[in-house]
Structure formats: C-alpha cells, structure tokens
Design a protein around this nucleic acid. Structure first.
Lengths: 109, 109
DNA sequence: TGACAACATGTCATTTCTGACATAGGCTCA
DNA sequence: TGAGCCTATGTCAGAAATGACATGTTGTCA
C-alpha cells in the first residue's frame, strides 16, 4: 500500500505514457497508477468529444473545474472512485470502463 | 453523485446479485455499486483459494481483519481504490481486474 | 494592446475513508 | 463444557480525498 511514497512520486514526473518503475514502485503500485492514467486520459477524450469545458463538466459531476483538471492530470489527490464515476457520467458503460482499465499504455523500456 | 443516499441504502439490503434500482438509484449509481459488488465477491474467492484467513490477508495488505470483512461485504465505507488494490495484492492482473469489472451479475427482473 | 475563455496549480475547511480496537456469533475439536 | 479459530459489525481518531476558491498561464479574437 504505502500511499506516501507513491503520492510524492506521482506528484513529480511521468504523467504520460511511460509509467516508471523509475524508483522503487512495486508492480502493484505501477499497475494501479497505470489504471489511473488510462482512466484520466479517457475522461479528457470523452469530455472533449462532447465539447464540454472543464467547468461545464464539473457541474455535471457536481465538482469543480480544478478537480476536473486534476482528474485529467491523474493527480495523486484523485481517487479511482472519482475517475470511474466521472466516466460513467460521460456515458461510459461498465464494459467500456473495463476496457479502459485493461488497456496497456506503451512502455518506455 | 449523492453519496448519502447510496450509503444508507447500501448499508441495508441487497448485498448479493440482484442489485436494486429498488429505490431511486440512477443507472450510474447502480453500475458503480455493481462494480463494487463484483470486485468484493472476487476478493473473497481469491482469498479463500489461497487459503488465507481475513486476518492473514489483512496483514498482507497492511489493513485489518474488520476492514477485510467490510471489503468482502462491499460495505459502503469501502472505496473502489481499496478493493482494486486488494485484488492486485491477491495476484490479479490489470486485465483480470477489468474482466471482473465488466462482469454482469444476474438481474432480478 | 486588452478582454475573454479554457485550463493548470496551490491551498484549505469539510467530508469521507481507513486502520485499529472491542465484541459477538458460529464452528470444530477435545 | 471450554478453548481456539474465523468472520461480522459497530465505533472512532487520524488520514486522505473532496469541492471551492484564488491565482497563474496560454491562446484567440478584435
């Protein structure tokens, strides 16, 4: 588990595809973070496809623009719960959510 | 979102397969809860298959027996985050987690 | 240039989740 | 019977996540 470790590392670099075992992340931690990244990315895609601003979308999910920005950045302060709820509001089905979670993003060696 | 509503309803009945739109749950809320139920069920299955007591498993995930019991009961106080982390510790891959999330449980009319 | 919209990032009070603990019920074995 | 597990459930202090707000950045249009 060890949130503290992950949180601070997450706050730092990577953000995008090449999720790092850079420093001492366990495989489980890596998998968990990659899921979050995949979900975050998909949220942005769907939101844009529906031509919603972060602010408009925030109202839909009863949240705030800043939190939406953090969701899409897969900020450490955002839970899987929130990401998945957001996707459901964007019209994703259970199966679609599953597909997103299963998706591998490209590895950087 | 509306946690309060869900929480109290979840505390009450259903538990098993036939997730209710009993009372006024939105489709999204239903989907979300069904995911939790599916994950919870799978955690128990895997834990038993590995012949771990709740107490032993709790130590593996740095938690407590009571929280494991609540996870497996899909208690309202347990987050998706925790359920998924637990599954990863039990050896589930990202794809397996996805499969579990996608799984429909039988509807009661 | 300025005004405006969209997005990013930091902070913080409140809400929610978490581990730990206590306690109870069920089951098995002697 | 009782001792020893295992699981369920309630409670609660402390930890983490949340929405809201402030402020900064970037791009566009005139």
């Amino acid at each position: 588990m060890k949130k503290a470790k992950k949180d601070r590392l997450e706050a730092a670099g990577w953000r995008v595809g090449s999720t790092a075992d850079f420093l001492n992340l366990s495989p489980d931690e890596v998998a968990f973070i990659e899921m979050k990244l995949a979900l975050a990315k998909n949220i942005r895609t769907r939101r844009l496809r529906q031509r919603l601003s972060q602010d408009q979308f925030a109202k839909l999910i009863e949240s705030s623009q800043s939190r939406v920005a953090k969701m899409e950045a897969a900020d450490a302060s955002v839970s899987l719960d929130l990401l998945i709820r957001a996707l459901l509001v964007l019209g994703a089905s259970r199966k679609e959510v599953a597909r997103i979670i299963a998706l591998e993003s490209k590895h950087a060696a």
